[in-house]
């Protein structure tokens, strides 16, 4: 009888892969990712394109609407961050303070560099895992992060869809393209 070739399509996640990739995940020191941010507060709702460049010394996050409208570029490094919008440029020490001041809402950018990889920041937290050992829920800093979908990038599983809530702020983060950078990449 015809032997059934393994389908090359999306191979599902399997037991233990999350634990096995922890070391590799730590070597993930930077990335370029494209995706979407949906944000809802009782007063407002925003949906924007997300372009995030992360390196060990520098980050740049672009939020933009259709036709490049409503463009905001948040960039800098620990201690010195700038936010450029259509109206002007502002600087501050932390990305969160700057976003809150300029945009009226903010995302915990520093913690997000861990949460985006499915990892908690180095502070008290609570993690729930699914049957395969992958995180499904992370609670930290008053945020609740639900990992709704994963995607295979090279030999790593990385989150594709995150639902984050904090009080009455509801954020959806969808990554449409991950391009990881590893410590040993030349």
């Amino acid at each position: 009888c015809a032997s059934k070739a393994p389908t090359s399509g999306e191979v599902g996640r399997s037991q233990g892969q999350w634990a096995a990739q922890q070391q590799r995940l730590d070597e993930l020191q930077g990335w370029e990712l494209q995706g979407k941010v949906g944000l809802r507060t009782p007063q407002d709702s925003i949906s924007a394109n997300l372009d995030w460049l992360q390196t060990p010394y520098y980050f740049r996050i672009l939020l933009s609407g259709p036709f490049g409208s409503g463009r905001s570029v948040l960039k800098g490094r620990e201690g010195r961050v700038s936010l450029t919008t259509g109206e002007g440029r502002a600087e501050a020490e932390s990305p969160q303070a700057l976003m809150q001041q300029e945009l009226g809402w903010s995302l915990p950018i520093s913690a997000l560099t861990q949460w985006m990889r499915g990892l908690p920041a180095d502070r008290p937290h609570e993690v729930q895992k699914d049957a395969l050992g992958f995180p499904t829920l992370l609670k930290q800093d008053g945020w609740r992060i639900d990992y709704r979908a994963w995607t295979r990038v090279g030999e790593l599983w990385l989150p594709r869809r995150l639902k984050m809530t904090y009080d009455d702020l509801d954020v959806t983060l969808v990554v449409t393209r991950w391009q990881p950078e590893f410590a040993d990449d030349d």
């Binding site: 494209q34 995706g35 979407k36 949906g38 394109n49 609407g65 259709p66 036709f67 959806t172």
Partner: peptide, 25 residues
């Protein structure tokens, strides 16, 4: 490409639909 998004105006109102976010304003 590289993402999906549709903005439609019928002359009265404008709809921005984002399939990734499953959201339309």
């Amino acid at each position: 490409a590289p993402y999906q998004q549709i903005v439609v105006s019928d002359g009265e109102e404008m709809t921005l639909y984002d399939p990734d976010l499953e959201q339309a304003t």
